[in-house]
Simulated assay, not measured.
Amino acid sequence: MADCAVPGDDSRTPGRNMCEGRVVIVTGAGRGLGRAHALAFAAEGAKVVVNDLGVGLDGGLDRSLDGNRGRGRDLNGPGGPSGPAQLVVDEIRAAGGEAVAHGGDIATTDGAASLVAAALETYGRLDTLVNNAGFLRDRMLVNLDEDDWDAVMRVHVKGHFLPLRHAAAHWRAEAKAGRPVAARVVNTTSGAGLLGSVGQGNYAAAKAGIIGLTLVASAEMGRYGVQVNAIAPAARTRMTEATFAGLAALPEDVSPLVVWLGSAGSAGVTGRVFEAEGGRITVMEGWRPGPTADRGTRWTPAEAGVAALKLLAEAEPPLPVYGVR
C-alpha cells in the first residue's frame, strides 16, 4: 500500500508511516468509530485534531459524564480537561503521537470555522477531514416529531457541510496561491442512507443527503486537489448496539479503509461510496439508468402505467429496506 506523506515528499520511502506529516481532523472522535479513526491515523504518523462535543446518543447531555461535571459546561468546551475528545488526545500522546482536542459544535458556523482554525493554528496545515459526528433519534414516521427530524438533519447534514465548506475554502485558497494540495475528505453515510431503515426516517434521509453532498463536493473540488469519498460503516458502537445487537464487527475494522482514503496513497479515488464491515470492503454502485421506454411523444396515464409495469418486470428488484422481514 502506498505511503501518504505530504506533497513534495517521497511518499514511497520504505518503513515510513502511511500518514507521516499529514494533519487530520476527525469529528465525533471521542468514542466509537471516530475514536478508532483518530487512533488509527495517529498510529500512521498523522497529527490529529480530535473533535467531540461530548453529548449522549440523542444529542443531549451525556449522563455518563455526570461524575466529571464539577467544571460545569466547560467539560464540553474546546479541549475540556475531562471530555471525551481530550481523553482520546491523551491516548494518542501516551502512544507517542501528536493530537489536540476541539470541543466545539461543528454544526454551527463558528464551531466549524474554529475546527479548521485549530488545525491551521496548531500544526500549520490541514490535509484530511473525516466527517463522522452524529447521533440518533429513532421513531416510526407517525411518531417522529419535527424537533427530532431537525436535530438529526442538523448534526448529520449540516455537521458534514460546514466543516467541509470551511476546509474547502482553505484548500481552494492554497491551490489558487500555487501551493500544491493533496487533500482528502471522508464523509460518513450509512446503509440506512443507501437502502432505508425502518424507524429511522430522519437518519436515513440525512445519510442519503450526505451521499449527494459527497458527489457534488467531489465534482466541484477536484480542480483544487481535493478528493471526497464516503463510507457506509457497520460496526458495534453505542449507536448500533441496541438496534443491531448481533453486530460483532468493531470500529477498528473500519478505520484502515478510512486512513487509506484520507491518505495521498488514494490518489485518483473520488466520488465513491464504500461499505465496510469487519473484513469486508464493498464499492457501492449507485443510481444508474435501467430499462427504458421512449415512444417519442407524450404518454397517456394508462399507457404510462403499462410501460412502467413492463420496465419493472425487466428491472433488478431493489434490495430490502433494513428492518423489513
Score class of each variant (00 low, 15 high):
Ala217Asp: 10
Gly83Ser: 05
Gly199Val: 03
Ile211Asp: 01
Glu241Thr: 13
Lys47Ala: 14
Glu285Arg: 14
Asp147Met: 13
Ala118Asp: 00
Trp260Met: 08
Gly97Pro: 04
Gly111Thr: 03
Leu126Glu: 00
Val26Asn: 11
Ala151Asp: 14
Gly32Leu: 09
Ser190Leu: 00
Gly191Glu: 03
Pro163Phe: 02
Arg12Cys: 09
Gly134Phe: 13
Leu144Ala: 10
Gly45Tyr: 00
Thr128Val: 09
Ala151His: 00
Glu98Trp: 01
Ile211Ser: 02
Leu65Cys: 08
Pro7Ala: 01
Glu285Cys: 09
Leu126Asp: 01
Asn51Gly: 01
Ala175Phe: 08
Gly54Met: 11
Glu285Trp: 09
Cys4Glu: 07
Gly97Met: 04
Thr292Cys: 03
Val254Ala: 01
Leu162Ile: 15
Thr270Asn: 06
Leu257Thr: 02
Thr188His: 09
Pro318Glu: 07
Gly45Asp: 13
Val283Glu: 15
Val181Thr: 04
Ala99Cys: 02
Ala217Gln: 05
Ala264Gln: 07
Val6Tyr: 15
Glu316Asn: 12
Arg154Met: 07
Arg280Ala: 15
Asn202Gln: 12
Arg236Leu: 11
Val50Ser: 02
Trp171Gly: 00
Gly32Asp: 04
Ala46Thr: 05
Asn131Val: 02
Val157Arg: 00
Ala302Leu: 05
Trp299Gly: 07
Val89Cys: 14
Ile281His: 11
Gly54Asp: 09
Ser190Thr: 10
Val55Phe: 03
Glu91Ala: 07
Asp138Leu: 00
Ala42Pro: 10
Val55Met: 06
Thr270Phe: 02
Ile106Gly: 09
Val185Gly: 14
Ile92Tyr: 03
Leu126Gly: 06
Gly212Lys: 10
Tyr203Gly: 05
Val259Gln: 09
Val155Pro: 07
Trp149Pro: 08
Pro256His: 03
Ala5Met: 08
Glu285Val: 14
Asp66Pro: 11
Gly199Ala: 03
Ala208Lys: 05
Ile92Ala: 06
Asp150Leu: 10
Gly262Ser: 11
Lys158Cys: 09
Gly96Pro: 06
Gly278Asn: 03
Asn131Ile: 08
Leu57Tyr: 04
Ala99Ser: 04
Glu98Ser: 10
Gly222Glu: 10
His102Lys: 05
Cys19Trp: 03
Leu319Glu: 14
Leu319Met: 09
Val23Cys: 08
Val26Ser: 05
Glu252His: 02
Glu277Arg: 00
Leu247Trp: 03
Val55Cys: 07
Tyr322Thr: 13
Leu87Trp: 05
Leu312Tyr: 12
Glu174Ser: 13
Arg288Leu: 08
Leu261Tyr: 11
Leu115Tyr: 01
Val185Thr: 14
Ser255Tyr: 06
Ala29Gly: 14
Thr240Phe: 02
Gly104Gln: 13
Trp171Val: 04
Thr128Cys: 13
Leu33Pro: 01
Val89Asp: 11
Val226Ser: 06
Asn229Cys: 05
Leu120Ile: 14
Pro7Glu: 00
Ala217Lys: 11
Ala38Glu: 07
Pro78Thr: 15
Glu303Met: 06
Ile281Tyr: 03
Gly290Asn: 04
Met284Asn: 02
Ala29Ile: 04
Trp260Tyr: 12
Asp110Ser: 14
Ala42Val: 00
Leu213Ser: 05
Gly96Trp: 00
Ala293Pro: 00
